[in-house]
């Protein structure tokens, strides 16, 4: 095993997660993700994508193996430290997890309020992230007055308002139509370009293949494909990126 590079953000080494039912969520998974990378985690339903995400936020403990995030062994993080660790990891889910009785602004501000930020910090940061996510005109709307794509933007804004160095998205476009999905991917790419490492779980092969990012494929908890990065131009603009996504489907280029 090569020594971990200084730029490694996520490292899984022989990670196995066996659930109480005896099912293997992950089986000897080994991979790593570098800083500022944009990586897709693909695989059919039940292949272990969500297990990876939940292990990364320490909602689950691995049965075997080591997980490091930014060089830190997650096993060494105590229960008491978990909240502080989680502030460095933004998470986005398929079902948005928005609070229905709060406005867009309040949903995003909530993440700062409950982590003890002052009102001044909140007033300074929330409008910025809402601008970044294209929600400036929807501040006072409630989630049920928004489209699915807009709701997912709110959830991304909430995950990113702290500017965490790592953003996890578990099937963020699973509930969205293809055109909206492209917008969401574009937003995630934009966030990635600000220097944030992004890991996106998806089972939409077509979309993933079009994006030509690094792809990790899981099957029954095992990593069966790790398509190396470097095939795509790193400094592609988000516009070019989106154009390519909208273009006709081309077969994935592999080494």
């Amino acid at each position: 095993m090569p020594p971990m590079s200084r730029n490694t953000v996520i490292e899984f080494r022989g990670v196995t997660k066996k659930y109480g039912t005896g099912v293997y969520g992950l089986d000897q998974a080994t991979f790593s993700v570098d800083r500022e990378e944009f990586v897709f985690l693909i695989g059919s339903t039940g292949s272990g994508k969500s297990t990876v995400m939940r292990l990364l936020i320490k909602e689950l403990e691995p049965t075997e193996g080591t997980i490091r995030v930014a060089g830190r062994d997650l096993a060494a993080i105590t229960r008491r430290q978990i909240p502080f660790y989680r502030r460095n990891v933004g998470v986005v889910f398929q079902d948005f997890k928005l609070l229905p009785n709060r406005t867009v602004y309040d949903n995003v501000a909530y993440a700062l309020q409950v982590t003890g930020h002052s009102r001044r910090e909140i007033r300074a940061r929330v409008p910025d992230v809402l601008r970044l996510t294209g929600l400036s005109t929807k501040l006072h709307n409630y989630p049920d007055q928004l489209s699915g794509g807009e709701q997912q933007r709110v959830s991304i804004a909430r995950a990113f308002v702290n500017h965490p160095p790592l953003l996890l998205a578990d099937e963020p476009t699973g509930n969205l139509d293809p055109e909206t999905s492209i917008d969401i991917m574009r937003l995630l790419y934009r966030i990635n370009r600000t220097g944030t490492t992004v890991l996106v779980a998806s089972h939409d092969h077509v979309m993933v293949d079009k994006m030509r990012r690094r792809v990790l494929e899981l099957s029954r908890g095992r990593v069966i494909r790790d398509e190396a990065a470097g095939l795509y131009a790193r400094d592609e603009s988000t516009r070019e990126f989106a154009q390519r996504l909208r273009g006709p489907h081309e077969p994935p280029q592999t080494l």
Binding site: I57, R80, I82, P83, F84, Y85, R86, R87, V91, K97, L99, P100, Y110, A111, V114, T115, G116, R158, A159, N162
Partner: peptide
């Protein structure tokens, strides 16, 4: 429970919850 779930995800401490 939704609020509690979100609070845990974004890193609120136990006592804050």
């Amino acid at each position: 429970r939704r609020e509690v779930e979100v609070m845990k995800l974004v890193g609120a401490t136990d006592w804050f919850i």
